[in-house]
């Protein structure tokens, strides 16, 4: 009964194909980034890098930074880091959980706090571009 119209047209498939291509290219692009031996975590607040953390030395520490709406509490674990609590309303950053690999990041948009591992490749891109 309903099957005659629930069928993808040629243009639908074209759009899906393009999106699938973008997904594959995106994963390849972010996948080929080299893995630094000693990752350094950058804490970015209001668009500026406020401090860097060495995860191997600061295990078990809790760091509090003040963002746009208030505090963000960062917990350093064994080669990993997470957002314990934040003053934002959606708590997406807290739900992201632990991150441990370069390329991963925790982003709190309302509080404008970003945690990311310093990436060798992105530094090069900054010089080239």
């Amino acid at each position: 009964m309903a099957s005659e119209a629930i069928r993808l047209t040629y243009y639908d498939k074209l759009v899906i194909g393009v999106i699938a291509l973008v997904i594959v290219i995106g994963f390849i692009y972010f996948g080929i980034m080299p893995t630094p031996q000693n990752p350094v975590l950058e804490v970015e607040v209001l668009g500026k890098v406020k401090q860097t953390l060495d995860l191997t030395k600061q295990e078990g520490e809790k760091i509090v930074v003040m963002g746009r709406q208030g505090y963000s509490i960062i917990e350093v674990g064994k080669n990993k880091v997470r957002m314990v609590d934040s003053a934002c309303e959606d708590k997406i950053c807290v739900h992201t959980g632990w991150i441990s690999k370069p390329g991963q990041q925790i982003v709190c948009i309302p509080n404008q706090v970003v945690l990311r591992f310093r990436n060798v490749r992105s530094d090069l891109d900054g010089i080239n571009g």
Binding site: L8, D12, V15, G47, I109, Q112
Partner: peptide
Amino acid sequence: FSPMGISIVGAVVHNVSQLTVAGLIIQNGG
């Protein structure tokens, strides 16, 4: 386009525009 195609395009535009606004707010395209 079928409704599914329209809906998929809408979802993708939704994602891209949200990421653009988010990138503007945190001042970082990463």
